[in-house]
């Protein structure tokens, strides 16, 4: 039954687009463009969930798809924009690893995760593509957190990893039981809220949200 659902090339297209959106985030130097790319990525994710729900006909996956759309595609980007406007932080992101090398590294990460998943060779051809995409999403998210100085970008990195996981969950097991999915969404939302509060507090005490300043606690 998986083959049919995943056989359709729409799904492959969507997953490819998700990968493209991650690279957009990797490549952008301005905060707004990153947030926008994140919004697109979540939207695409919601579509993937929708298609899976449509093909398996289970109601709770529909709810999950709708929730992704509502929270990840709409609410969280809005929170980001609110934070950026509130803190009046300068737009561009200063980075440890500038754009071109980080793009190359992103590419290498995708290849590695593809190779890793293939060597596990336990799932059918196509869904392994979805799993490797989710693995690469997770690793690129982590890479973004490591290479970007701005605190907001680290928040964004976490959310990208979250999306990668969600994609993996969908492709592997068509979503967890509803209760659990709700819990995860709820947690992610609160996480973003609290990180926002933290960023405001950092901004108030350090007058900048550049994590380079956060180096006092040593040894």
């Amino acid at each position: 039954m998986e083959e049919i659902v995943f056989g359709s090339n729409i799904m492959q297209l969507l997953i490819a687009l998700i990968l493209v959106s991650t690279f957009m985030i990797l490549g952008s130097t301005r905060l707004y463009s990153c947030v926008r790319a994140f919004g697109i990525q979540s939207f695409l994710l919601a579509c993937v969930a929708g298609i899976v729900a449509f093909s398996t006909g289970k109601i709770d996956i529909y709810i999950v798809a709708f929730l992704t759309l509502a929270i990840k595609a709409a609410l969280i980007p809005y929170i980001f924009i609110y934070i950026i406007r509130e803190i009046k932080v300068k737009r561009e992101i200063d980075l440890y690893v500038n754009i071109s090398p980080s793009l190359i590294i992103g590419g290498i990460l995708v290849v590695i995760s593809y190779y890793l998943i293939r060597s596990i060779n336990l799932i059918t051809e196509l869904s392994s593509f979805a799993l490797s995409a989710s693995m690469s999403l997770v690793s690129i998210g982590l890479f973004i957190m490591i290479s970007r100085k701005k605190a907001i970008m680290q928040m964004l990195g976490i959310l990208i990893m979250e999306n990668g996981l969600f994609l993996g969950a969908i492709s592997l097991t068509y979503g967890m039981p509803l209760l659990v999915e709700l819990g995860i969404f709820f947690d992610v939302l609160i996480g973003v809220l609290i990180m926002g509060i933290l960023i405001f507090r950092i901004n108030k005490t350090f007058e900048t949200i550049d994590t380079d300043m956060l180096k006092t606690l040593i040894g």
């Binding site: 982590l142 890479f143 957190m145 290479s147 180096k215 006092t216 040593i218």
Partner: peptide, 24 residues
């Protein structure tokens, strides 16, 4: 314990990769 958060994240990433190689 350098204090930079990026280094700490890099440690986690490193352990993950090593363990992965270990399993592979």
């Amino acid at each position: 314990q350098t204090g930079s958060i990026h280094a700490y994240l890099a440690y986690i990433f490193g352990t993950l990769v090593i363990l992965f190689m270990f399993v592979i």
